[in-house]
Design a protein around this nucleic acid. Sequence first.
DNA 1: CAATTAATGATATTAATTACTAATAGAGTT
DNA 2: AACTCTATTAGTAATTAATATCATTAATTG
Lengths: 151, 151
Amino acid sequence: MGKQAACAEKDTKASRNTIQRGLVFEAVKELHNHPTSSEVYDVVARKHPSISRATVYRNLDVLTGKGQVSRVDILHGAARYDANTMPHYHAKCRQCERVFDVDLPYQAGLEAEVEKPRGFVIEGHQIVFQGVCPGCQSQAEGMAVGPAAQA
Amino acid sequence: MGKQAACAEKDTKASRNTIQRGLVFEAVKELHNHPTSSEVYDVVARKHPSISRATVYRNLDVLTGKGQVSRVDILHGAARYDANTMPHYHAKCRQCERVFDVDLPYQAGLEAEVEKPRGFVIEGHQIVFQGVCPGCQSQAEGMAVGPAAQA
DNA sequence: CAATTAATGATATTAATTACTAATAGAGTT
DNA sequence: AACTCTATTAGTAATTAATATCATTAATTG
């Protein structure tokens, strides 16, 4: 079908290096807080005010497909993105809603345990811990506090 | 504060046994497919056509708060509910989008590993595996297939 | 039965994301 | 550099999931 059938691996339609795509990738790399699409948009729009939110979504999808960023789907909320594409796990604070990296080593054995008995072909997994981060613990001595607004 | 301070545990405001709440709970119990709120609504509305979607959402929240059902937040999609409140894990098929139980034992040790070094107070965790379920594997011999529509 | 107020139904609203389309602009070719 | 091809963009509309609002209804308690 494709005209470039010579390429053995994939008939991927050639992607273009647009400045928008570059800016989205840059933004994810410089934000180390597992930013949502909205936070990525804010950073990019500062340098390139005409960019559309739809473009940010599209490029986050494209970059995820290329493996340049990874999507971190966190419990009950917007998708988040991470320039660290090495498999690792996350913890979400239920007070401030921020997402943290967790230094638990990758649990490679889990997938085999699931795959064998059921016949399910496992391609990956995510682990998300829920709790309260150190910062919110000190604030919340006794009184209830709403989500913090820190970046 | 509360008038029923005699109750040692909580000053929970008395909840009422409405037929709507009963029907929502029944629906989650009879649906063993980790139904979304919409699927719960469909089942309940068959018996009680006047019910509002907001009522279903509200009651799923209430039942979750009471621990009678558990909310399963799955990667990239609507929240799902489960009448099995014992901690367990899930796998989502990327073809048919269905969610399956996984018989991996609860990994109690993980939380301690995370809590110690970081000072993060962990209250729970979820593991979601992604892959292709047995049914979709047999269908997808060679050709690409969209999400199946089975209940 | 009457009083209290949790809960409902209907609708409006918000948030996150996707779909659509005409216009634009990468990248390869000449 | 000019030309072609089509991926990509900006802007907007549409969709989906969930929450907020509020007048009305109905479950419990005395």
